[in-house]
Design a protein around this nucleic acid. Structure first.
Length: 434
RNA sequence: GGAGAUGUCGCGUAGCUGGUCGAGCGCGCACGAUUGGAAAUCGUGUAUACCCCAAAAGGGUAUCGAGAGUUCGAAUCUCUCCAUCUCCGCCA
């Protein structure tokens, strides 16, 4: 979400940015917005004047009423003034209604106009134009065949999709034994990894109210993702970012509390409506998963520095688990409207012989803060908008796919990298059941 | 979940028989005076958003948990919601 004032002064830059994002259909919105803004400001001025009039007249009534206690003839005068105010009431009501409409229309358009992308973002229409920036670790393909991830899990008696289907339906899973432990081990390791980087561990609410949901996503996104609790004003979060960033809505933060570097854990619930459905077998795309996330709220001038650090944390973590990864930068057309710059960390799949997304790191600039009215009280006493960023640390069980495929041995056992051993009871390897 | 109480400008409070209350007082904070320096004292100031104004100065509107209503006019009255506290119930 951009600043209306800024758009007013830089409509061409806004249009240029829309073109760069291949959203030409939104170009007319800019001029439309400028017209609406003009009208809105006119009606605000007009309505303010009417209110000012009403306020002074009402004060007169008060005075007259006071005098009327001594001099009853003043009562008539007071009634006359009252009538005068009433006469203007309709006009004001109408203006107020129009004001409301205009504001809504403007807000609606502002939500749709994309954030100004960073000059470094590669230009391209869609995800096919995303750019591989760097690889970390050798993407090896072993001699032996790597089975599908659920098959690896089954060898450990580690997954029961059939029962999950009967109990909860498609898109759910039972993780069992070593695989379940591995799942939690990865989360615990990721948590400690981030704490080691100076982040503050945080467990947020897993359900949030509608007004918070509306703050953090659009209606369309909401319909496609969020589960609602029947009979309550509560929704299951799709990621901890929802409740984490919700924590700051409408708040004015003291400057010395920045940067806020948080790492949050939560289960995530997603309908995945309209996505690729749940066609992908296994635990790649599911209704429920768990995630360790990183969230940063910082001064504007520091956000790019944090962005670099954050995606590198993901790389470091995956490398410490012997998983080859690459950084894939989102091109302009694939960048979500709120984001200034973002990249995915993709893990190597020796089975598919390609990389697949495991982390998504984004710098939102001040757009999210503006939308949610998150402000910082500066040293000079003035408030300003901070920048917000987020990135995945790990999101198992999807992350387990990368882990199992890359650490599988020819004999069917799975190596446990040194970093993870403390979370697996010290084991250096886990072996299949049969 | 049941009963009661409460929610005011950073904090603590006054106001809550509707007008002179955007809001008094104390603390805190900032600046100034005083001082060799400090403490103390005195003085001044101390929210957010938006609109008008080229800008500054200045002016205006809105905000007393949130929303709606009554009224010429609401911090003050009514309703709904939210939160907090106390007691009871129920559970990890």
């Amino acid at each position: 979400m951009l600043d209306m004032k800024w758009i007013r002064e830089n409509p061409d830059a806004v249009k240029e940015n829309i073109r760069k994002k291949f959203q030409d259909e939104k170009l007319p919105l800019v001029d439309q917005l400028l017209i609406l803004d003009e009208e809105n400001r006119r009606s605000i001025t007009e309505a303010s004047e009417l209110r000012a009039q009403r306020n002074t007249l009402s004060k007169q009534v008060g005075m007259l009423m006071g005098q009327a206690k001594k001099d009853p003839s003043k009562l008539e005068e007071a009634e006359a003034v009252k009538a005068k105010v009433k006469a203007n009431a309709d006009q004001l009501a109408e203006l107020e209604k129009r004001e409301g409409e205009l504001e809504e229309e403007i807000h609606h358009i502002l939500m749709v106009i994309p954030n100004i992308i960073d000059p470094s973002v590669p230009i391209g229409p869609d995800d096919s134009a995303n750019v591989e920036k760097e690889r970390f670790g050798e993407p090896l393909v072993p001699e032996f065949e790597i089975p599908y991830h659920t098959e690896i899990m089954e060898r450990f008696h580690g997954i029961d999709m059939d029962a999950a289907g009967r109990v909860a339906g498609n898109g759910f899973y039972y993780l069992v034994g070593d695989i379940a432990r591995l799942h939690e081990g990865v989360l615990a390791y990721a948590r400690d990894f981030m704490i080691g980087k100076g982040f503050t561990y945080c467990i947020p609410p897993f359900m949030i109210r509608r007004n918070v949901v509306e703050g953090v996503m659009s209606q369309t996104e909401m319909d496609a993702m969020m589960y609602k609790i029947e009979g309550e004003d509560l929704y299951l979060i799709g990621t901890s970012e929802h409740s984490m960033i919700g924590r700051f809505i409408d708040q004015i933060l003291p400057e010395d509390s920045l940067p806020q570097t948080l790492t949050s854990y939560s289960p995530c619930f997603r309908k995945e409506k309209g996505a690729h459905g749940l066609e992908e077998r296994g635990v790649y795309r599911i209704h429920q998963f768990e995630k360790q996330e990183m969230i940063v709220v910082c001064k504007p001038e520091e956000s790019m520095g944090w962005y670099e650090k954050m995606w590198r944390f993901s790389v470091e973590l995956f490398r410490s688990l012997d998983i080859p990864v690459r950084q894939l930068e989102c091109c302009s057309g694939d960048l979500a409207d709120l984001k200034v710059k973002s990249c995915d960390i993709e893990a190597w799949s020796p089975r598919q012989k390609k990389y697949f997304e495991v982390c998504s790191c984004a710098n939102m600039g001040d757009a999210q803060a503006r939308r949610l009215k998150i402000r910082v009280k500066g040293a000079d006493g003035k408030n300003y908008l901070p920048h917000t960023l987020n990135n995945t640390v790990v999101a198992p069980p999807r992350m387990l796919i990368a882990f199992l495929e890359n650490n599988l041995e020819a004999d069917g056992s799975v190596r446990i990298p040194a970093a993870l051993r403390p979370y697996m009871g010290g084991a250096g390897v886990i072996t299949p059941k049969r």
